[in-house]
């Protein structure tokens, strides 16, 4: 397609900054989930700095696009995007998970500006997105609804209830992104509950399925554009990603699903991300 290189460069830089925040935030919290935040960073950057129609000064603007992070444990990267987009001060980010912070360990609805849904227990977000998409259609509004799922959420039965509902209701104002990073909490997805052939399954459930490299900004944008013009059914973008992407010692390492970097690891991560510590 040949997208504007300047835009791609800008979004890649946004994603880098989000990754820097993720390692700093989880380090400061001494807990949290860096792996699934880093794998999602490029898609989140594309959404929050280019795709989503938002007004940070009016987080509840009725015509805004909605983004639901179904895999709520990945919220550090979402909080970072919201802060960088101006929903709240960037300085708040390091209060993640601390007593009294508005940045809860898992997203809290109605507290953090820009957070569209509660999440924490896996598997509920796609259903919530369907409710939002149905309401948008009922009210004749042209906002779009985006949901991000972890690949582990394909284990959850409710995800497939939602898959059926999305296609049944022909929700072409709904786009889901599956962060296909191959790992869940304690193993590879294929070593716990085999998911493959995953794109075939979503296709069989009636979705427009696109499979992309979830770290390639051009492919991410092209898929999101295509979803916008697809009629009569929802789109599922299966983004092939690497858990921990951008920090060599976190990439594909199970421990960094739910463990924060220590002091030394933070320093190394920041230097790899091209950020002075």
């Amino acid at each position: 397609m040949g997208l504007d290189q300047a835009l791609i460069d800008e979004l890649d830089e946004r994603a880098r900054v989000l990754r820097v925040h993720v390692v700093k935030m989880t380090h400061a919290a001494r807990s949290g989930h860096p792996g699934g935040s880093l794998s999602a960073a490029d898609v989140i950057a594309a959404l929050y700095f280019h795709i989503l129609r938002l007004d940070p000064k009016d987080p509840s603007w009725v015509d805004r696009d909605r983004f639901v992070l179904s895999k709520g444990h990945g919220c550090p990267v979402l909080y970072a995007a919201l802060a960088e987009r101006g929903f709240f001060p960037v300085d708040d980010l390091v209060t993640l998970r601390k007593l009294g912070s508005h940045l809860q360990g898992h997203p809290e609805y109605g507290t953090t500006p820009g957070i569209e849904a509660p999440a924490g227990a896996e598997g509920q977000g796609l259903s919530i997105s369907i409710g939002m998409a149905l309401a948008g259609r009922m009210d004749g509004r042209d906002y779009r609804v985006y949901a991000m799922l972890g690949d582990g959420e394909n284990d959850v039965g409710q995800t497939w209830e939602a898959a059926m509902a999305g296609a049944n209701f022909k929700l072409d104002n709904l786009t889901a992104i599956l962060d296909r990073n191959q790992l869940q909490q304690e193993r590879r997805t294929e070593d716990i509950m085999s998911l493959e052939p995953l794109t075939d399954k979503w296709r069989a459930f009636g979705w427009n399925v696109l499979e992309i490299d979830g770290h390639d900004m051009e492919s991410i944008l092209e898929a999101l554009y295509e979803a916008r013009t697809t009629q009569g059914r929802p789109t599922m973008i299966v983004a092939q990603t690497v858990k921990g992407k951008g920090v060599s010692f976190m990439e594909n390492v199970l421990r960094f699903h739910g463990t924060a970097p220590n002091d030394e690891e933070l320093e190394q991560a920041l230097s790899e991300l091209g950020e002075p510590s």
Partner: peptide
């Protein structure tokens, strides 16, 4: 349910591999 390491039921799985069932997030 994707929690066998965390709950240490993985120890049971090491001792009796055919008596531990990890069903994933389900």
């Amino acid at each position: 349910a994707d929690t066998t390491e965390s709950l240490k039921t993985s120890l049971f799985g090491e001792a009796f591999p055919d008596r531990l069932f990890n069903v994933g997030i389900a």
